[in-house]
Measured scan of single mutants.
Amino acid sequence: TFVEFNGKKVEYPTPEAAEKAAKKLAKKLNLKVTKKNGNYKLE
């Protein structure tokens, strides 16, 4: 499962880990999380 932000793509071993990381990053970077095709994107 990938988390995409600032043009970077980071892969996580589980969807749970990706979701957790996405939410944490979104909060830190003041972005919102969108889920697309099972992957997460911060914008």
Rank of each mutant, 00 (worst) to 15 (best):
K28W: 11
A26C: 05
P15K: 10
K27G: 08
A21I: 06
P13N: 09
N39K: 05
E19Y: 15
V10L: 12
P15D: 12
K23C: 14
A22K: 00
V10N: 06
F2Y: 13
V3T: 01
K41Y: 15
V33D: 00
K9R: 14
P13E: 09
K20E: 13
N6K: 09
V33P: 02
N30T: 05
K27I: 11
A21W: 07
T34M: 09
T1G: 07
F5N: 01
A18R: 00
K36I: 15
V3A: 00
N37Q: 08
E4I: 12
L25R: 02
K36R: 11
K8G: 07
K36L: 15
K23Y: 15
K32T: 13
L31H: 03
L29D: 03
N39E: 08
N30R: 09
E43I: 13
K9M: 12
F5Y: 13
P15N: 09
E4A: 05
L31E: 01
L42S: 01
V33A: 04
K9Q: 11
F2T: 11
K32L: 10
K27M: 11
L29A: 04
L25N: 02
T1K: 07
K9C: 08
P15Q: 12
K23F: 15
E43T: 12
K32V: 14
A26Y: 01
V10K: 13
K41G: 05
K23N: 13
V10Q: 09
K32W: 06
V3D: 00
K41Q: 14
E4Q: 06
K27E: 12
L31K: 03
E43N: 06
P13S: 11
V33I: 15
N30S: 07
T34Q: 07
A26R: 02
E4H: 06
K36S: 14
F2G: 03
G38Q: 05
T34H: 08
G7D: 07
A26P: 00
L42V: 12
E16P: 03
V10F: 14
N39R: 06
E16V: 08
A26D: 01
K28D: 11
Y12A: 00
N39S: 12
K28G: 06
K20G: 07
K24M: 14
K20T: 11
N37L: 07
Y40V: 04
K9D: 03
K23R: 14
K35C: 12
A26H: 02
E16R: 09
P15E: 12
E43Q: 09
Y12L: 02
P13D: 11
A26T: 02
E16K: 10
G38N: 08
E43Y: 13
L42P: 02
A17Q: 11
N6I: 06
A22M: 04
N30G: 15
N39V: 15
K20H: 12
E11D: 06
A22H: 00
E4W: 08
K9L: 12
V10M: 12
Y40L: 08
F2K: 03
E11Q: 13
L42C: 03
E11F: 15
Y40D: 02
P13M: 08
Y40F: 13
E16F: 08
Y12R: 00
E11G: 10
G38F: 04
N37S: 07
N30A: 07
L42Q: 01
T14C: 05
E43R: 05
A17C: 08
P13I: 06
K8W: 15
N39Y: 12
T14N: 10
E19L: 14
E16Y: 10
L25Q: 04
T14M: 03
L42K: 02
N39P: 01
F5C: 05
N37K: 06
L42H: 02
P15F: 05
F2C: 08
L25D: 01
K9N: 09
E43D: 08
A21G: 04
A21M: 07
K41S: 13
F2P: 00
E19S: 08
T1R: 08
V33E: 02
K32C: 10
N6M: 14
T34K: 06
F5I: 07
L29G: 04
T34W: 06
L42N: 01
K20N: 11
N39G: 15
N39H: 15
N37C: 06
A18V: 00
P13R: 10
K8H: 14
V33F: 06
E4V: 08
G38Y: 03
T14A: 03
K32N: 08
F5E: 01
V10D: 05
K20I: 12
A22G: 02
T34G: 04
E19M: 10
E19Q: 09
K36E: 15
E43F: 12
G38L: 04
K24C: 11
N30H: 13
N39D: 11
A21F: 08
T1P: 08
